[in-house]
Design a protein around this nucleic acid. Structure first.
Length: 264
DNA sequence: CAACCTGTTCGCCA
DNA sequence: ATGGCGAACAGGTT
């Protein structure tokens, strides 16, 4: 489910617990989502600590706690964070519950392709360092964009858009939305793109990210009806511009929708 | 029962 | 050494 804008919304859900102590931790640490993490250390360290703040980088979330404790959550395909009341009883796929006196902060992930990581130390965890620039920042500029594409000349443009090291936060629906707006066929190889097409993709990337943060990222509301996302999953989906039936195929290993009239 | 899935990582191959 | 691609991960839904 979650790409950049949805992850931003899920990150903010736990803001309700900022400044408050964790009094108990329920962690099903044998589960796949805890791979590579010491569930006991997580439990021992987080109890009695306060949630201080959180950050997002691409699709990654980092929650900082007092006492030099850091909790990383990646939502994968089906992960969600939410808040429940303090007497909440955890359900089947609620793998991690941080209990506070006033509420419970819950991480749920049926499919478990997400990941929970824990780090204790003064400095941020290694896996949070050397992140690529946020698309919605000045550091994500034409130079960075062109250099990244230059390293993947033979790949279809959609494959590059899905690479988190170059387009942090972009996922399947945002990639299709960007290429539809830029009027570029998702399967087009990067070395075949014209300068004009590259520039259109750069601008559409920034635009889709900014606009989806203003809707989905802010209050989980739908982007405008004119967006491709509303059509891409439906049977009989049409181009929002002139109602041409969308085409579907697997590109870069993922289901892809595009308008055969707009995108060439 | 089979195919599919808004994500990432691994191993194989060029 | 680097880049491209298919499979695997786990469990639910169509």
């Amino acid at each position: 489910m979650p790409e950049l804008a949805e992850v931003e919304w899920f990150r903010k859900q736990w803001d309700a617990g900022r400044g408050r102590e964790v009094i108990d931790v329920k962690a099903l640490s044998s589960k796949y989502v805890f791979r590579g993490t010491d569930g006991n250390a997580l439990r021992q360290n987080l109890i009695d600590q306060k949630l201080l703040r959180s950050k997002r980088s691409g699709k990654q979330m980092l929650f900082e706690f007092s006492g030099d404790n850091w909790l990383g959550i990646h939502l994968g395909m089906t992960g969600k964070t939410r808040v429940e009341s303090s007497d909440f009883q955890s359900g089947k796929h609620d793998h991690l519950v941080l209990c506070q006196r006033e509420r419970a902060l819950v991480f749920n992930d049926p499919r478990q392709l997400g990941q929970v990581r824990f780090h204790h130390g003064e400095d941020k965890p290694d896996w949070w360092k050397d992140r690529p620039p946020e698309i919605d920042s000045r550091e994500f500029d034409q130079k960075f964009f062109n250099e990244f594409l230059g390293r993947h000349r033979k790949a279809p443009i959609k494959a590059a858009l899905l690479m988190q090291s170059g387009f942090p936060g972009i996922g399947n629906w945002m990639a299709d939305e960007i290429l539809w707006r830029a009027k570029v066929l998702p399967s087009k190889r990067i070395h075949k793109l014209t300068a004009r097409e590259r520039s259109a993709i750069f601008r559409a990337t920034k635009w889709v990210v900014r606009r989806s943060l203003e809707t989905l990222g802010k209050d989980f509301s739908d982007p405008p009806k004119s967006w491709l996302i509303h059509q891409k999953w439906k049977r009989g989906g049409i181009c929002p511009i002139h109602r041409t039936p969308l085409r579907h195929a697997t590109v870069a290993g993922r289901t892809t929708a595009w308008c055969p009239k707009c995108q060439r």
